[in-house]
């Protein structure tokens, strides 16, 4: 069990049976008053965030979370399928649990699948991925303003803003945390 004084940013605890991560943390102790531990918490399954204030004496159950390296196989009506490359165990995550990561998933990509009490709840992608542009209209001629952009669609179906010189067939480096274009890696 954790105590209030163990609370800090990044700690994972169980509240009402659900795993939460502390995303913001503030310690307050007005003179002669009890210590107050104010937390912003994010539900690791639903993404729902809430504020809670705890006091000394409160106890917390650590969230039993485990990360496993798995390979992305395919998606269908059931969801997104992943395989453990050592045990060949397969798991399926819903579209909600995969979240924005679906924009960057490629067949055979290795990702970290997060399990809560043996149930897969989310995936962590590498910070950067390389994806091919499948559709992008040529940049408007004469539009040379610095920083001008145009939309481009990637092989995963994800559309983002890219510089005007990008063409169909280019391979781009994408930051999966922001969903933004970083650079062109191959023409």
């Amino acid at each position: 069990m954790y105590e209030s004084s163990d609370l800090r940013k990044g700690l994972k605890i169980i509240i009402d049976g659900q795993p939460y991560i502390i995303t913001e943390f503030q310690f307050s102790k007005p003179g002669k008053g009890q210590a107050l531990y104010r937390c912003k918490l994010k539900n690791m399954i639903t993404g729902y965030t809430m504020d809670r204030t705890y006091r000394s004496g409160d106890k917390f159950e650590p969230a039993n979370l485990e990360e496993r390296r798995m390979q992305y196989l395919y998606n269908d009506a059931e969801g997104y399928h992943f395989m453990d490359t050592h045990t060949y165990d397969q798991v399926t995550l819903s579209e909600d649990n995969v979240g924005n990561a679906k924009n960057f998933l490629q067949d055979n990509m290795e990702v970290d699948v997060l399990f809560f009490n043996e149930t897969p709840i989310s995936i962590n992608l590498p910070n950067f991925v390389h994806l091919k542009v499948v559709k992008s209209d040529p940049g408007v001629k004469g539009d040379t303003a610095t920083g001008a952009t145009k939309p481009a669609t990637l092989e995963t179906g994800y559309t983002l803003q890219v510089p005007l010189f990008i063409e169909e067939g280019d391979i781009l480096k994408i930051d999966t945390r922001t969903g933004e274009y970083v650079e062109r890696v191959k023409v």
Partner: peptide, 13 residues
């Protein structure tokens, strides 16, 4: 008391 110090920390200060 509990409410007092919580409001002191997060509403008054």
């Amino acid at each position: 008391e509990l409410h007092f110090y919580e409001d002191l920390a997060f509403k008054i200060e």
